[in-house]
């Protein structure tokens, strides 16, 4: 199977992730969309590493995973504090800051 297909898959996953961010209303689901985008990127990095015959892309994927985990923790902490204050994780309910 051609390696290019993995790049297409990664682009599709990235697009799905960004669609989730734009469409869904629940902060946690939005956040899952962001994670999907980051992991799609990881797939692209690993595939390109294979195409270029290097290991760099795989090492990069490790860094991305760690950064994504740190982001998860900060994000969950923020969402959790909002949820505790309002009993809701909907982005639409967070509406004090409308124009």
């Amino acid at each position: 199977m051609s390696l290019v297909n993995y790049i297409y898959l990664s682009a599709i996953l990235f697009a799905i992730g960004s669609a989730v961010v734009l469409v869904r209303r629940n902060a946690i689901v939005v956040f899952m969309g962001v994670e999907l985008m980051l992991n799609a990127t990881n797939l692209a990095f690993v595939t390109f590493a294979r195409m270029n015959g290097q290991l760099d892309g795989q090492a990069i994927a490790l860094f991305v995973m760690v950064v994504a985990a740190a982001e998860v923790v900060v994000g969950l902490a923020i969402i959790m504090s909002i949820y505790r204050a309002r009993r809701s994780a909907s982005v639409d309910d967070a509406n004090l800051l409308k124009l």
């Binding site: 961010v21 799609a40 990127t41 990095f45 982001e71 994000g75």
Partner: peptide, 25 residues
């Protein structure tokens, strides 16, 4: 404010990273 900043910031850094992946390719 923190939630909005976080969600949009994470969204944009994912774009940055995917761009970096394409450039790596």
């Amino acid at each position: 404010a923190s939630l909005k900043y976080f969600l949009l910031g994470a969204f944009s850094s994912a774009f940055f990273l995917f761009g970096a992946a394409l450039i790596y390719g």
